[in-house]
C-alpha cells in the first residue's frame, strides 16, 4: 500500500464507523453493566450470540451488497437443526453422515433460491419469502411424519461434539462455544474473498448496477447462485451447531435470525440499496448488535424496557456510523 499510516486515514476506512458504534455501546454497558460485562463470562455471553448470528449475517450482507435479500435463512436454521437431529438422534446414524446430508440439502435449497431469482426475475425478497414458508412446511411435515413429535433429542459425543457444538476448554474459562472459531475463520475467509480477490469487486459492481456489471463481463448469474448457496448453507450450519450444542432441535424458531442478520448488516454500514459495505463492517455490526442485546442483562434496568433500550442504542450506533461514512466520503486530503 502506498499511503502511509495515519489516524485520520484509519478513521476514513469504511468499517471505522461500525467500529466506533461498537466502542460507543461497549462504553455504555461498561458504565451501566459494570465489570462483570467485560469479564470472560460476560464477553463470552455476547461473543457466542455474535458468532451464531455472524456466520449468517456475512453472506446475507454480501447478498445485500449485491442488491439481493435472503430471508429464507429463518427457515434454514431450524432446517439444519432438525435434519441433523433426525439423522443422528432419531435414526441413530453417524453424526458425520448427518452433517454431510444437512449441508448438501442446504446447498440444494440455496441453488433453488438462486435459480428462481435468476430465471424468474421476481424480487429475491419474494422468492425467499416463498422458500421461507416452503422450508418451514417441509421441516414441520417431515419431522412429525418421521419422529411423531415437534422436538427431537440428539446426543453427540467425540470429535464432532467438540468441533461443532461444545464449549472450548481453557480459553475464556471454558465459556466460548466452538462456533466462535468457525465464525472467526469464516470472517477471515470472507475478508480475503471480498476485499483481496477479483470476485469481491464483482459483488460491489452487481449491487451498483447489475446490467452494466454483466455487460462488463462479470458472471452475475453464477455469483448470485454462489451467494444464495453460501447464505443457505451458513444458516443450516448454524442450526446444526445449535442442535449439537443444545442436544435438541425444535421445528419452530430461527425466525429472529432474519431480522437480526439484516439489522447487524445495516449497523455494519451496508447500504440497504446495495453497492456499499464491507465484511469487517458487518463483523463489527454483528458484535454491536450482540453487545446491545446481551448487555441489557448485566444492567439494572427493568427488563420490561429492554426492547426500548435495544432499539435506541441500535439507532445511535447506525447514526454514528452514517456520520463517519459521510465524513470519510467528503474528506479531501490537504495539499502537502
Amino acid at each position: 500500500m502506498s499511503q502511509s499510516f495515519s489516524i485520520g486515514g484509519l478513521l476514513r476506512r469504511p468499517e471505522a464507523g461500525a467500529f466506533l458504534g461498537l466502542v460507543a455501546v461497549l462504553i455504555f454497558f461498561g458504565i451501566f453493566g459494570g465489570v462483570a460485562f467485560l469479564k470472560p463470562a460476560g464477553m463470552s455471553s455476547w461473543l457466542n450470540v455474535a458468532a451464531n448470528l455472524g456466520i449468517i449475517a456475512i453472506p446475507v450482507g454480501l447478498l445485500m451488497i449485491a442488491g439481493e435479500l435472503d430471508i429464507s435463512v429463518g427457515a434454514m436454521v431450524p432446517f439444519g437443526a432438525m435434519t441433523t437431529a433426525i439423522i443422528a438422534g432419531h435414526w441413530d446414524q453417524s453424526i458425520w453422515l448427518a452433517i454431510v446430508v444437512t449441508l448438501s440439502f442446504a446447498l440444494v435449497i440455496g441453488l433453488v433460491n438462486g435459480l428462481l431469482v435468476i430465471r424468474t426475475a421476481v424480487p429475491s425478497l419474494i422468492v425467499t419469502l416463498g422458500t421461507l414458508f416452503a422450508v418451514q412446511g417441509i421441516v414441520l411435515g417431515m419431522t412429525v411424519l418421521i419422529a411423531k413429535s415437534t422436538s427431537v433429542a440428539l446426543k453427540t459425543e467425540g470429535p464432532a461434539k467438540a468441533i461443532f457444538g461444545d464449549f472450548i476448554p481453557v480459553v475464556f474459562k471454558g465459556q466460548l462455544q466452538s462456533i466462535v472459531v468457525w465464525w472467526l475463520l469464516a470472517a477471515a475467509a470472507y475478508v480475503f474473498f471480498v476485499h483481496f480477490s477479483r470476485r469481491g469487486n464483482w459483488i460491489f459492481a452487481m449491487g451498483g448496477d447489475k446490467v452494466s456489471a454483466r455487460n462488463a463481463g462479470i458472471p452475475t448469474e453464477r455469483m448470485t447462485m454462489l451467494l444464495f448457496v453460501l447464505s443457505a448453507t451458513s444458516a443450516a450450519f448454524v442450526g446444526m451447531c445449535q442442535a449439537i450444542q443444545f442436544n435438541s432441535a425444535q421445528v419452530a424458531g430461527g425466525q429472529s435470525f432474519i431480522f437480526n442478520s439484516i439489522i447487524s448488516v445495516v449497523i455494519g454500514g451496508v447500504l440497504l440499496t446495495g453497492g456499499f459495505g464491507s465484511v469487517v463492517g458487518i463483523f463489527f455490526g454483528t458484535i454491536t448488535f450482540a453487545v446491545v442485546n446481551q448487555g441489557i442483562y448485566y444492567t439494572d434496568f427493568d427488563r420490561n424496557w429492554s426492547a426500548l433500550i435495544i432499539g435506541v442504542l441500535l439507532l445511535i450506533a447506525v447514526l454514528l456510523n452514517n456520520t463517519f461514512r459521510k465524513m470519510a466520503l467528503t474528506h479531501a486530503p490537504k495539499k502537502k
Binding site: 424458531g253 430461527g254 446481551q294 448485566y298 435495544i310
Partner: peptide, 25 residues
C-alpha cells in the same frame, strides 16, 4: 419474571446466554 426481547426468540444461544447473564448478575 424475566421477559426476553423478541430478538432472542427461537435463538437457543441468545436464550442460554441471557439466563447465564442473569445468574452471574
Amino acid at each position: 419474571q424475566l421477559p426476553l426481547p423478541s430478538t432472542s426468540f427461537g435463538d437457543a444461544t441468545a436464550v442460554a446466554e441471557a439466563i447465564k447473564a442473569e445468574l452471574l448478575k
